[in-house]
Amino acid sequence: MNGVRSKQEKVFAAVAHVVLSILTILAIAPFWLMISGSLTDNETLTKFGYQFWPKVFSLEAYQYIGREWAQIGNAYLITIFVTVVGTVLSLILVSLTGYALSQRDVPGLNAVFVLILITMLFNGGVVSSYIIYTNVVNVKNTIWALIMPNLLLNGFNVVLVRNYMRNSIPKELQEAAEIDGAGPFYIYLKIILPLSKPILATVGLLTAVGYWNDWTNGLYYVTDSKLYTVQLLLNQMNSNVQYMASHSDIQMATQNIPSVSVRMAIAVIGILPILVAYPFFQKYFEKGITMGAVKG
């Protein structure tokens, strides 16, 4: 970038590659094992355990899941919609809140901050949440049931964003804008948001994964199978397989469920889409506008 890289920089880069390669192997090996397991004949799997290469190749696990494909396809649409809408809404909320809380000259913000901290620690339990979300704000069997409860906003994200805005964005920027007569909304939109890309990407990732992997909201608040999410379906299948396989009195009904390989196939199906989507998301992790440039 800026001319010849020093020898020291090269050493650092080399060390970085070595360390990250080790981490890559540690991360990929089990993932590979999972895929291989999902493609192995179930009988072989239970007898010899997981292997890095299928001892006896078989697609029976995917065929088993494939039987439910009509429903899983719909569930993917629902899950994608919920993840996208939920994450966008969440980012709007969290950035607004984080920005407001990052101010140093507005009274009462510390009290609000503590109130938010409390939400991270104390919770009234699922039963009372259920009462609120079915009686007070009735989200049952609507798409909001999958978006609103618990996932939309949490204190942890607010704290992260607020601290980033407070510590990593030079306060002189905001002060200069204020002197020029800019209002808080203008500053938020034009200065703070563009500079907060990295943290918003981080929090967005956290939120998106939260939405993608959640099945409890569906379990509690959705009975209409048109609104089932992928993870809810997969979770149901998983428990079904487990139950059928461990209760001999009913297993005759569904002989030959490839129970162990299905588990792995279910995991693969649950993870793959988000893994494929992730690289597109990554550009937001690149360095935003250079701070110096704005300052000048």
Binding site: N42, E43, T46, K47, A245, S246, S248, D249, S259, V260
Partner: peptide, 24 residues
């Protein structure tokens, strides 16, 4: 946590303790 069913089907187990009814 492999099920009894799997172990019996693939021949890992040869037998197991059971309630013992004819239906089972």
């Amino acid at each position: 946590d492999v099920s009894l069913n799997d172990y019996m089907t693939n021949g890992t187990f040869l037998g197991y303790f059971d309630e013992g009814t004819e239906q089972l």
